[in-house]
């Protein structure tokens, strides 16, 4: 049983508009049997945080193309993307590079 973890989530480049315009979020993910990974985080965000138009943020099981993801200030492509196993107090940043956010 993995303990609950606290994350710092940040949304930018217009992506924050889907989260009531709030850029910074401290969230606590509940404890669950397996460790949390990015894929599950996206599911959790969709269910618990997204206020409107979820398709503008997640598509399929990943982020919408054009949204960049940084885990602890590094490109998530270096961290295994969806398979990255989240640690307590990680910072995850989502930046939209799309026009109009």
């Amino acid at each position: 049983m993995a303990a609950p973890i606290t994350l710092h989530l940040e949304f930018g480049g217009g992506a924050e508009l889907l989260f009531e315009g709030v850029k910074d979020h401290q969230v606590t993910l509940p404890s669950q049997s397996q460790p949390w990974d990015m894929k599950q985080l996206l599911v959790w965000i969709r269910a618990n945080m997204l206020k409107e138009r979820p398709e503008l943020f997640v598509q399929g099981d990943t982020v919408r193309p054009g949204i960049l993801v940084l885990i602890n200030d590094a490109d998530w492509e270096l961290m295994g993307e969806l398979t990255y196993e989240l640690q307590d107090r990680d910072t995850v940043v989502f930046i939209s590079t799309l026009h109009g956010g």
Binding site: G12, G13, G14, E16, L17, L18, E52, R53, L56, G66, L68, L70, D73, D75, V93, I95, T97, H99, G100, G101
Partner: peptide, 26 residues
């Protein structure tokens, strides 16, 4: 690329202001 720019701005603290446009959330 827009990725390079987004990373640069994020890493080196380049300030930018998000101004919604005609196409925002369309």
């Amino acid at each position: 690329s827009s990725k390079e720019i987004a990373f640069y701005n994020k890493m080196f603290g380049v300030p930018s202001v998000f101004v919604p446009g005609l196409d925002t959330k369309a």
